[in-house]
Simulated scan of single mutants.
Amino acid sequence: MRFSARVSVVLLALGHLFNDFYCNFLPVLLPIIMPRLDLSLTLSGLLVMVMSIASNMMQPVFGFLMDRHRMSWLLIPVIPFGAICICTIGFLTTKAMLFLLIALTGLSVSAFHPLGSSLVAKVAPAGRQGQSMSLYVAGGNIGFAFAPVVIVAYTQALPLSALPWLILPSLCMMGLYAYSGLARFSTIQETSPSDRLPLRKMLRNPSVVRLNIAMGLRCWTHVAVSTFLPLLLVSAGYSAMISGTLLTLFLAGCACGGITGGMLGDRFGHKRIILGALILAVAPTAYFFTHAGTAPLSLLALFLSGAFLIASQPSSIVWAQRAMPGSAGMASGMMMGLSFGFGSLGAALTAAIADQIGLAPALLLTTLPLILSIFVAAATPYPENARTQKAETAA
């Protein structure tokens, strides 16, 4: 590498920032594109579903391939590829091309997440894997949080045809990655064949299965908040600007939680931090849904809800990677992609419930899967090899 381990982790976190920045353009661009291409609400919903499947559910597939084949070269073109797809959306003239470009944008997200986290696991300083993963996760949360604000301001000042100028940062990242030497790392995990679990055993591994269920239940609450928060506030009489600002506040809390969660996991144990974060997330989440608004306590509760909901994610990635020796890419694909895919399905169920009882009560009910996730995580066995590694590090 041309840079130190710490700088390399920062570069990967920066790439994650831009990767998630570009993937969150669609919600803001959708109201502009709908009249241009005569999209119905049904087609718009299908478009969002295509994006979710391509960007979340495909991550374990990419991770599985990266664990067995040298695919680190993808680090150089993957971010510009996604940026070009989403930033040329204003030039499309057919619905078919729109669906294709959105699917390709989602696939670029699915490719980057397991690749970036696998490389973080390889270049992280000794004993700082959780801290490094926290920085990597936080980068994505920051990019995702500020994308709507940037795109709203950009499209208000410039026409949609000027969107390709936003491709330039991705080209800078491509140059940095090409110069850094990170793309020369092998994504194939350095474990002996006897240590590597075959796919069938990985999918039956109780630690992996239960942890994925626990994180999927947590993501149900997280996805429901980030999806329906603006609608909840607008229906309560708040302006679109205030609603967007509160969503940014929630996502900023997610970024802070992402930074601190893995650091604390390195010090106190990843299972303890996951359980603690899930427990602490319940009260502020429930409080905000019963006091939604701009009162100081409500704003604090919303921020803390985001922070605690995401604080468990870095530790879950480290935990899954240790439970799946030789399959770091697939492990991170499960924790960063598949769990959010499950969360999206749960959010769809929340929407269906909201049609029957109202949005605010339906969102309050999403604290139930969050509570259930605590019990599932508590019953999940922590991998024995992780305890051995921790003891060796302490020695």
Rank of each mutant, 00 (worst) to 15 (best):
Y179M: 12
L197K: 12
S186L: 07
M202T: 14
P164D: 09
N205Q: 12
F228A: 06
L231N: 14
P169L: 05
V208H: 06
G216A: 07
S192W: 02
C172W: 06
R204W: 08
K201R: 15
S180P: 08
R196S: 09
S207G: 14
A178M: 08
A214M: 08
I167G: 12
G216Y: 05
A214F: 05
T191N: 11
L229C: 09
K201S: 11
P206A: 04
T187E: 00
L163P: 14
C172D: 00
M202A: 14
P206R: 12
I213M: 10
C172N: 10
C172A: 15
A214V: 00
G181F: 13
P169I: 01
L182T: 04
S194E: 15
G216H: 04
T221C: 15
A224S: 15
L163G: 01
S192Q: 13
L211S: 12
T221E: 04
S207R: 09
R196P: 02
V223D: 01
R218I: 13
L176E: 04
P169S: 07
P159M: 01
Y177L: 12
L217N: 00
L231G: 11
R184L: 13
C219W: 10
S170Y: 03
S186R: 13
G175N: 00
R196V: 08
L197T: 06
Y177E: 05
V225K: 03
K201G: 01
L160W: 02
L203G: 02
Y179G: 08
L229Y: 10
L199Y: 06
R210H: 00
T191V: 15
G216V: 02
L163A: 05
L158P: 01
A224F: 00
M174I: 00
P230Q: 14
L160M: 15
A178D: 04
F185L: 15
V225Y: 14
R184I: 03
C219I: 03
S194Q: 13
L203A: 14
P198W: 00
I188H: 01
S170Q: 02
S180L: 06
A224C: 06
S186W: 02
E190Q: 14
M215Y: 11
A183S: 14
L217H: 02
L199N: 10
K201I: 03
L182G: 01
M173N: 07
I213S: 06
R184M: 06
L166E: 00
W165R: 03
M173V: 04
A162N: 04
I213G: 03
L182P: 02
P230K: 07
D195R: 15
L182H: 01
M174N: 04
M202R: 14
